[in-house]
Design a protein around this nucleic acid. Structure first.
Lengths: 352, 352
DNA sequence: CTTCGTATTGTTATCGATCACATACTTATA
DNA sequence: TATAAGTATGTGATCGATAACAATACGAAG
C-alpha cells in the first residue's frame, strides 16, 4: 500500500450533525436535541434521526461540544512519578468509573518537591481543560486550596482520613484486626513500620494501630518511619529489633514487610517462630513468598472507583450521583508469616 | 465560604485572543500569528502582544484550537485492565515523553477478549479525538490494522520483536546473558517459564532463550507456558521439575520466578543448591527475597519513553523527530538465587 | 370557528481559535 | 521617483456542536 495511515484517514472523516440532519430530513438542532434527550422528540422523528445516525456511523465531535458547552469531560489523575509503589489497580478502578460516567481520565505524573512541584501543578491546571482532578499523591493543603479555586480536586484517601476522625469505618480499620490477631497469638509487644506520613493511607494505618494497641491491652514497641519501599522496611526492621522484647511487626504495606522479613533473616531470626510479620495490600506475590505473608486483602479497584465517585459527585452538585460503593472490602489473610508468640526471651544469633 | 469551587471559577474566566488583541491594539489574527510564529511579526507589534498577554494572563483555549485545526494533541495509552502485572514505570516514561512533546496521554484500560474487545477498541477510537495510540497490551493483527486506518497505533514491544528478527539488539537480548551465566555455573540442562505469547516481550525472551541454549551447547529442558502471574509460575515450575535433570529455571519475569521458587520450596528443593532460578525485570522487592533473586535490571521508563518516541515519529511524518534513546539499558543482576549446578543427581525429598 | 397553550421543530447566534484572502505598508530596484 | 515585489496586518468565513429565540402544528377550551 502506498498510503500512510494518516492519509487513509481521509475517507473515514466523521459525519456531522448537519449531514445526519439532511439525511433524516430534519434540522440540525433536532439532531442535537435527540442527543440531549430523545424523549423530547416525537417518536417518528426520533426514529428517523436514529436511522440516519446509524447509517452514517455518526459519533459526536466532543471537541466542538466542549467549545460550546465549556464542559470538558476530561479529568486529571495525578500519580506519583518516580515511585513504583503506586497501586495501579486503584488507577484502573478510577479510570473505569470515569469512563462509565462519560469522562476521560488523563494521567499526569506529579513529581518534584516544594515550590517546583507547586509551579508544576499550577501549570497543569492552568493549561489543561480539566473539569476536575483526582490525586493519588499527597498534596500540601496550600497547594490543594489553590487548586480547588479552579476545579474540584479530590485527594485519594483523605476522605477515609476524615471518616476515621469521625470514628467511622475507614481504610485503616483493618489495622485493628491485625493488632487483635497478633494479641490473640500471645504477642505482648509489637511494632509498626509506618509509610510516609504525607500519605493519608499511611496516617490512617498508623493512627488505627496506635489506638488498637491500647485497646488490645498490649505494648507499642515503637513506630519506625519509612517510605513505601522494601529497602526502607529493611532498615526500619533492623532498628526495631534492637528491642529484643518485640515479637511482631506490622508493616504498612507488603513491600515494607518483605524488607522487614529479609532484615529478620539477616539477623538470624526466624519468621514466624521468633518474630511474626504482617503486611498490607495483599500483592499477588505475597502468597508465594517463603514464608508466605499474612496481609490485608484490599479491593484496590473499588477504592479507586470510590474516590472517583467522590470527584464525580463534586463535579455535578445537583445531578443524581451514581451509587457510591459500600465500605471497601478488606480482609485479613492469614498465612505463614504470623504465628504464636515465642515463649522464651529472644537473643540475636548472628551478627547484629 | 459560601461559594462552591465551581462558582468561584467565574472571576478566573480566561481571556481570549480578542481581548488580547484589543488591549494590544491589533487584530485578533495578529495575536494568533504571534502564537504560531512570533518571528513573522514586527518586533514592535510582537512586543505589544506580549505585554497584553502577560497582563491578561492569557492562555490559549486548546479546545477551540483543536476544533479548528483538527489536531488534538491527545494520545491514547491502552493498558491491561485486570492484570496487575503491568509495569506502570513504562507508562510513566511514556507519559513524560508525551508531555514533553506537548501531548496529553489518556489512559484507558482495554479489557475483555475476542469480538467484545474489538468492539470496545473500535468505540474508543471512534469517539475519542485521539491523534495516536500506544498500546501496552497485545492487539490482534486484524484489530491493529483496523485501528491503523484511523490513527497511528504503536504496540509496545513489537518494534523490539522486529529488531530481534533482524538479528539486532532487542529487549530480549539479555536472555542470552542469562543462559550464558547458567552455563558458566555448570548447568547442563535448564528450562524456561514463558509469559503469554501474545506479548511481544514474552515471545522475545522465549526466542532468544531457545537460540542461546543451542549457542551455549547445553540442553533445553523444556518450556512451560504461563501467564505473568506467580500462581502460573508455581504450576509451571512443579510441572518442569518432573524432569529431575533440570538444574536451573529461567522465568520470563520476577513474579513467575517467585512462584517458581515457592514451588521448589514446596518440593523440598533448595534454591540455589538444588535448582537455580533467574527472573526478569528486577522488581524493587526482588533484592529482599529469601533467597534474593538473580534477575535482569531494566530501565522500564526508558522503554516506555522509547515506545512513545516511535509513536511521535509516526505522528509527524516530516517534522524533526526527537532523538530516540539508545538501546534500553539491561543488566544481569547476580544474587543468591543462582549458583553452581549441583554435582549429584537430584531426588525429590518431600511430597511430589 | 376562533383562540390559546403546549409540544415540537427550525433559524440564527455563539464558543475561541485558525485559515484564506484582501489590503496596507515597506523596501528594493529600475 | 515610480513601480514591483515582498512583508505585515486586517476582515470575514469556518470548524461542529449547543443556546436562545422564533415559528409552526396540534388539540382543547370558549
Amino acid at each position: 500500500m502506498t498510503k500512510t495511515p494518516a492519509e487513509s484517514q481521509q475517507p473515514a472523516r466523521a459525519a456531522t450533525i448537519y449531514e445526519v440532519a439532511r439525511l433524516a430530513g430534519v434540522s440540525h438542532q433536532t439532531v442535537s436535541r435527540y442527543m440531549a434527550d430523545r424523549s423530547k422528540l416525537r417518536a417518528a422523528t426520533s426514529e428517523k434521526v436514529e436511522r440516519a445516525m446509524a447509517e452514517l456511523k455518526y459519533s459526536p465531535n466532543l471537541t466542538a461540544r466542549s467549545l460550546r458547552t465549556k464542559a470538558t469531560y476530561r479529568l486529571l489523575a495525578l500519580v506519583p512519578g518516580a515511585s513504583p509503589y503506586f497501586p495501579s489497580r486503584m488507577l484502573n478502578g478510577a479510570a473505569a468509573t470515569a469512563q462509565a460516567a462519560g469522562y476521560q481520565l488523563d494521567v499526569v505524573a506529579l513529581e518534584g518537591t516544594g515550590p517546583e512541584r507547586t509551579a508544576r501543578l499550577r501549570r497543569i491546571l492552568d493549561g489543561g481543560p480539566f473539569a476536575g482532578a483526582l490525586s493519588f499523591v499527597p498534596i500540601s493543603s496550600t497547594d490543594l486550596l489553590q487548586a480547588q479555586e479552579r476545579i474540584p480536586v479530590v485527594v485519594a484517601g483523605e476522605y477515609d482520613d476524615k471518616m476515621r476522625g469521625q470514628g467511622r469505618i475507614s481504610d485503616g480499620s483493618a489495622a485493628q484486626t491485625i493488632v487483635a490477631h497478633l494479641a490473640g497469638l500471645g504477642h505482648r509487644r509489637i511494632a509498626h513500620i509506618a509509610g510516609p506520613q504525607e500519605w493519608p493511607a499511611a496516617r490512617n494505618r498508623l493512627a488505627v494501630y496506635r489506638q488498637a494497641v491500647g485497646h488490645a491491652g498490649i505494648e507499642d514497641g515503637g513506630v519506625a518511619d519509612a517510605d513505601w519501599s522494601s529497602a526502607s522496611g529493611y532498615t526500619a526492621a533492623r532498628a526495631l529489633m534492637a528491642d529484643t522484647s518485640i515479637t511482631a511487626i506490622f508493616a504498612a504495606n507488603d513491600q515494607l514487610a518483605i524488607g522487614a522479613m529479609r532484615a529478620l533473616h539477616d539477623l538470624g531470626l526466624n519468621v514466624p517462630a521468633d518474630v511474626s510479620v504482617v503486611g498490607w495490600d495483599d500483592h499477588p506475590e505475597s502468597a508465594f513468598l517463603v514464608p508466605s505473608l499474612t496481609t490485608v486483602q484490599m479491593d484496590l479497584e473499588a477504592q479507586g472507583s470510590s474516590t472517583m465517585h467522590q470527584l464525580l459527585a463534586a463535579l455535578t452538585p445537583g445531578a443524581p450521583v451514581p451509587p457510591e460503593p459500600g465500605p471497601t472490602a478488606m480482609r485479613l489473610v492469614l498465612r505463614e508469616s504470623s504465628g504464636p508468640a515465642p515463649s522464651g526471651r529472644r537473643q540475636t544469633r548472628l551478627n547484629p
